[in-house]
């Protein structure tokens, strides 16, 4: 009887160790992309960090329901989007624009940095329905089909939104160029 108890305890703790390992692999592999996506979703780094923490906590609690590691990315994105929606149920925050946020390319040349800052401002100014599929494509390299599935949308709708998103980005950049040309000239 005692030996049986010990065995079951041992298997419980080895289950726990397995879970812990799976979780850590998940965090290490995906937290960067998930955090960046959250930043673009909520356009505020502090809020994004909170949501990411909530997301991974939920992921930990229901890790057993994740059967296929390949589905981990879309599973986490789903949790993240739900957490974000929950935040809106609670309270609407004042959000700081993404272009105030420091980014990884600190070391880049001034010119490129200015260009990226401009680009971030443009991307941040897209409405959410355009920004979300675009960022899924840019950050996670999702295909149209995958985005459609993730956002629960028709593929044609997704493709149209992606088209409009890039179209708006291009137009905004061209307009900025013209303006800058005018100011410079």
């Amino acid at each position: 009887m005692f030996s049986r108890k010990q065995n079951s305890q041992a298997s419980v703790s080895s289950d726990m160790a397995n879970k812990q390992k799976r979780y850590e692999v998940l965090v290490l592999a995906l937290h960067t992309d998930i955090f960046r996506y959250a930043c673009w979703l909520v356009k505020n780094k502090t809020v994004a960090e909170d949501i990411v923490q909530e997301t991974f906590l939920r992921a930990w609690k229901s890790l057993d329901s994740l059967k296929d590691e390949k589905a981990a990315k879309s599973w986490l994105i789903t949790i993240l989007r739900r957490e974000n929606a929950r935040r809106f149920e609670r309270k609407q925050f004042d959000l700081v624009d993404i272009d105030d946020v420091s980014v990884i390319d600190d070391q880049l040349s001034n010119e490129v940095e200015i260009e990226h800052r401009e680009l971030r401002a443009v991307m941040g100014s897209l409405s959410e329905e355009y920004r979300e599929p675009l960022m899924l494509q840019i950050i996670f390299g999702y295909s149209g089909d995958e985005i459609a599935e993730q956002l629960d949308l028709n593929k044609n709708t997704v493709m149209t939104r992606l088209f409009r998103a890039r179209n708006q980005v291009k137009e905004a950049l061209e307009k900025a160029n013209v303006n800058r040309g005018r100011e410079n000239g």
């Binding site: 965090v27 673009w40 780094k45 930990w60 980014v103 990226h116 680009l119 991307m123 960022m135």
Partner: peptide, 26 residues
């Protein structure tokens, strides 16, 4: 360019927070 511009710097301690919080939770 958009891909580069999208790369928000991840806080250094985020990984540790994520793993620590879950350890405490469990």
């Amino acid at each position: 360019s958009m891909q580069l511009a999208s790369q928000v710097k991840v806080p250094d301690d985020l990984v540790h927070k994520l793993i620590l919080r879950q350890t405490m939770q469990s």
